[in-house]
Design a protein around this nucleic acid. Structure first.
Lengths: 213, 213
DNA sequence: CTATAAATCAGTCGATTGACTTAATTGGCG
DNA sequence: CGCCAATTAAGTCAATCGACTGATTTATAG
């Protein structure tokens, strides 16, 4: 699973066959993936399930010391810190985040894995608690911002992982977490513009009536 | 190119071969992709380049009526509305956004396409203008939030496209744009927490010293 | 109408892939 | 020690892949 994850992250899901994974772990035989997992799909699911389990365990610890208070930030921290801390614990280089980002965007794998990931108990508690702090938002806006937050956590994690792997002297994981929490708090608590005002776009000209080449 | 994009979006870059693309457009022969583009990489680049050009044209129109004022929202609208309006103009169903999201996460294609996309002149102007409205932010934070914004635009576009294609009665493109602008304004203008305060995490317990199973 | 270029068709080639079968090896347990 | 199940090795198989070739059709310009 580690070898598969690494190859996937390095060369893309597209370019890695089951055989190369078997060869990468030193087995002359090529049936390894098929034998142990059944196929590519099940392998990907197994990898993601393992990570999901570990991260949810960290979420549990994050909630254990009493749930966050009434403010949004506390809940956002419970949402952001466990996965990023998990990634940090993997050392450098790691490949999980970049692998996960690829899986998310694949139409087949994304649906499969996404549902399992959202079923994690502690994650549900956090999303639930966070949602209650945001019940002043219209439901579609709340839902939309929720998916934005999920996307950002994985995207930022993948980007930071890539930066570290390429020895880019960027931020630390701690700084990344901090920055992401700040950004998500801003995103989630942003004011909602009523959908009727299409005219009030500052000093610009008519905002409509132009598209399709 | 349209057929390739559709197949990629539906089944994933992983599952679509050059042959299937040739067959999908009714050609008995399978050399179409190879003949016209050279290979998969060049095909992807061609598709993305076409979209990038169209979107940048819309950006140009968005900037033509005089650049936005001093506020962040005007610049964010210039960043968000052109790509989403372009997607809206493609009708339902469309596949560009989901295809683009996949390309972005692939290690090889993402680097290739990302650089070309960032080189669009009008996009550079917008990012430049937006950056000037945010010069109170520490450079790493500004840069980080910039990539978050880019990620969100494509992710939200892909999600909306998917919802429409599956006939999910969600929002309209206009509402999506509005919501994304609101969220991005909140994200970009969020307060920055100084990186030293690791203790002040509301009512939670010690925020460190737990990870790695 | 024709010359030229572009595009499509038809078929082949070697390489690769995943699925499969069968034998050898390993390690745990009584 | 010997048995047994799990794993690995070794090799086969049909299917598919991308690249290549050459003939034919189509589009375009003069």
């Amino acid at each position: 699973m580690a070898a598969a994850e690494r190859l996937y992250a390095e060369h893309g899901l597209l370019a890695v066959s089951n055989r190369r994974i078997g060869e990468a772990v030193g087995q002359r035989n090529v049936t390894a993936v098929g034998y142990h997992f059944g196929g590519r799909t099940e392998l990907v699911r197994a990898i993601m399930a393992r990570h999901g389990e570990q991260v949810d365990r960290l979420r549990g610890r994050c909630l254990a010391g009493g749930p966050p208070g009434d403010d949004v930030r506390g809940w956002v921290e419970c949402l952001v810190r466990p996965p990023l801390r998990y990634l940090a614990s993997l050392g450098v280089p790691s490949w999980s985040a970049r692998f996960g980002a690829q899986v998310m965007t694949d139409p087949a794998l994304g649906k499969l894995v996404g549902e399992e990931a959202c079923a994690r108990p502690h994650l549900r508690r956090i999303l639930d608690g966070l949602g209650r702090r945001l019940d002043h938002l219209p439901p579609p806006v709340r839902e939309s911002r929720g998916t934005m937050a999920r996307q950002l956590v994985t995207a930022v994690g993948a980007e930071q992982e890539r930066a570290l792997a390429e020895n880019d002297p960027r931020e630390s994981w701690e700084e990344t977490s901090q920055g992401l929490v700040d950004a998500l708090v801003g995103l989630l608590t942003a004011e909602v513009t009523e959908p009727t005002h299409t005219i009030r776009t500052q000093g610009k000209e008519t905002p409509d009536r132009e598209a399709q080449r």
